[in-house]
Amino acid sequence: MQPESAPAARVKRSLPELTHPAAPLVMVTAYDYPGARHAEAAGVDLILVGDSLGNVVLGYDSTAPVTLADMIHHGKAARRGAPNTFLVVDLPFGTYHTGVTDAMRSAVRVIQDTGADAVKMEGSTPEVLDVVRVLSRNGIPVMGHVGLMPQTAAAQGGLRVQGKDDDSARRTLEGALALQEAGAFAVVLEAIPARLARLISERLDIATIGIGAGVHCDGQVLVYHDLLGLYEGEEKKIAKRYADLGRESREAIARYAAEVRAREFPSKEHSFVMKDEVLDKLY
């Protein structure tokens, strides 16, 4: 079997290019070596190692159980798969909520241990804004996140669209503006009305990256498993399935199982041979 050839080297997008993009940015959330490798070979602008790995990879029912060690483990794998793509790693729940010192320590570990280019955190509370300011001033790029925030979704009334009423829409807009002022280089807008996302994108000087936020953001992000149909369940409104690899993988495994049980695999093509005289000496 011939080894897989490495994808052609590419130039990593710079922070200024991502902060003020000339064309819509493409971001994919990937969690491991092959996923990141495929994303880089496809030419995406950014890869996010999201704490959604708790749901998609680790089988949790929320992102809350994900630890810093989990993020570092998966961030390392993604970096090995995509050495030439701008890599962002989520700071998981609890690692930046207990003060600037703890947040700085967590962010430094992520950057040093994974080789990531930036970290991402959710929310725009005064405490989070303080963290964004300190990290940004100390050379750690931060991507913000407003709208639906999975880490604290229970406090938002569950996994539902945000920004539909006056108060929620204003909080989302003001939160995005505050993150920009604090030093974030980009802001994810998740599950908010398209018209609100367009207004926020027009008001901000930094990039907005949407997921379930309409076409007028400065970029879009989808989860690797969602866009390839690897994640079980119905297709999500905020995602588009570009392939159905989950079905194909199940069918492939079923064919493999059938051939094994019928003694059709391995065939001669997949078996090794030896000389008769060598075998005869064993009898």
Rank of each mutant, 00 (worst) to 15 (best):
Q2F: 07
Q2G: 03
P3V: 14
H20F: 14
L25P: 08
V26A: 09
M27N: 11
T29E: 06
A30T: 11
Y31P: 03
Y31I: 08
R37T: 03
R37H: 14
H38G: 12
H38S: 14
A39M: 14
G43D: 12
L48H: 03
D51H: 04
S52D: 06
G54T: 04
G54V: 06
S62A: 02
A64D: 05
P65S: 05
A69F: 04
M71K: 08
H73V: 01
G75C: 09
A77N: 00
A78I: 09
A78N: 07
R79G: 10
G81F: 03
L87I: 06
V88E: 07
V88H: 09
L91C: 04
T101D: 14
T101Q: 15
R105I: 02
R109F: 03
A116W: 07
A116F: 06
V119L: 15
M121K: 09
P126E: 11
D130F: 06
I140F: 11
V142E: 02
V142G: 02
M143E: 03
G144Y: 01
L148P: 12
Q151C: 00
T152Y: 09
L159E: 05
L159Q: 06
R160E: 08
G163L: 05
A169N: 07
L173K: 04
A176R: 02
A186L: 01
V187Y: 03
A191L: 13
P193V: 01
P193L: 01
R195D: 15
L196A: 01
S201D: 05
G210T: 00
G212T: 00
V215W: 13
Y224Q: 06
D226H: 14
L227I: 15
L230P: 00
E232L: 08
G233R: 07
K236C: 12
K236S: 15
R241Q: 14
A243N: 03
E251W: 03
A252S: 09
R255S: 14
R255H: 15
Y256G: 05
E259I: 09
R261E: 15
E264I: 11
S267R: 12
M274I: 14
D276A: 15
E277P: 08
L279D: 10
L282E: 11
L282H: 13
Y283I: 13
